[in-house]
Simulated scan of single mutants.
Amino acid sequence: MDSSQDEKEEREHFLRIVRAFKHYKFHSLDRIARTERFLAKLPHKHRGLLARYSEHLSTLKTCVENNDKIIKKIVKDVSTIFENSHLVDSKTATSSPTAQPSPADMEKVQATLKQFVRDWSDEGKLERQACYQPIIDELEKYYPESIRSRQEHRVLVPGAGLGRLAYEIASRGFMCQGNEFSLFMLFGSNFILNRCEGPNTLQVHPWVHQSVNCLSSSDQTRGVRFPDVNPSCLPPHAQFSMAAGDFLEIYTENDYWDCVATCFFIDCANNIVAFIETIYKIIKPGGIWINLGPLLYHFADMLGEESIEPSYELVKEVILGIGFIIEKEETGVKTTYAQNPHSMLKYEYDSVFLVCRKPEQSYSYSNGTQDEEVDDSDYEGSTVV
């Protein structure tokens, strides 16, 4: 594929995501309007009994309006944060008559709003303690501040989302880079990390689209303030960056990272073996991989996508076969993801927590010989921004 075609596809993808954010208000209000129209068809007696429900629908519209104010901040001048931004004019995002966002894209916009709660609110603290704290604790155990300056240790966080785990690692003195492929998450992380106005200055209504399993109407409409900390207040010498792009394409330098920390990430691959293989290659001999999460396998039931979905038992064989030494393994670790704590229905993962070390003397898992040189021709890198 030539560069002009690449640029065209890049531009179209970018505009598609901008379009989804900008469509949020119309999409959400239209959904409420459909409910109102159905309500108006009910018998007069039924409508009388549902008078408070009608008021609730009006409150939902106010919540959507408030969420849209956050979205406008997220997409404001967003094209200036990426390379090749001259190819993109976000003002044209809604100009195409065939520009209707897909239901899947609208769900991702809603998921981004929930992610602000998980990563950057007091309400998300329990989730972060369950998912992020074990990773941070292991990292601090392996690299105590007293032994060597943490600034000399490079930590990579693929699938960084809105950047909170990478932020916390950088705040503890490590040189840390977050990597994210999803433009939905990248738009959100750029906003929260670079343009946020200060602690608890913003409010989102994350559960406004969750119309089922609500014990109280207020559970659906309540607001959550964020961010719980000022993201710009890192220690003076903190080294923190975010890289946009495909993990397999960007990270091709062997033996570079002291640690790769993954949380709810490795099951995002069509081929989980490729993720584990790349993690092994880029970690320095003696370095560690810390992983926590389930095996949801995002592409498993996605139309038009191919995927493999091995059990954890088989994934463990892959990890050992590639060359890792498993130093810590815990199963049944209770975790949630962007969970509404007031919902009548809650999902909980029995996640796996692993700490794996790359041996000081690494060997090729393909032929059992010392791995002196690895051909990276299959992984052409994209630019880190």
Rank of each mutant, 00 (worst) to 15 (best):
E249A: 14
V318N: 05
D228V: 12
H237Y: 06
G159V: 02
I276P: 00
N230R: 11
S54K: 10
V157A: 06
D376G: 14
A51S: 15
P144C: 07
A166Q: 01
I81Y: 15
S54D: 07
L60T: 00
R222P: 00
G323L: 06
E123L: 15
D137E: 15
N67P: 03
D246F: 03
S90D: 07
R150T: 06
I326H: 08
P206W: 04
K8P: 01
T369Y: 09
L186E: 01
L193H: 09
N190L: 03
P144H: 05
M302N: 07
Y337G: 08
V75E: 04
H298G: 09
T383I: 14
I81H: 08
K69R: 09
Q220I: 04
P231G: 08
M344V: 05
L113R: 00
T92Q: 13
Q110R: 07
R31L: 07
N254D: 14
Y312S: 04
S189Q: 09
T335E: 06
V78F: 04
R19T: 03
E12W: 04
S366H: 13
T35G: 04
S217V: 02
I290H: 00
C356Q: 06
G323V: 05
F174Y: 11
E373F: 14
L29N: 12
A20P: 05
V109A: 03
S79P: 02
Y280P: 01
R52I: 07
R172E: 06
M242H: 06
L320D: 02
V333T: 07
M302T: 14
N190Q: 12
D105G: 07
Q177S: 13
V155R: 01
E36K: 15
Q133H: 11
P227E: 06
A93H: 00
G188Y: 01
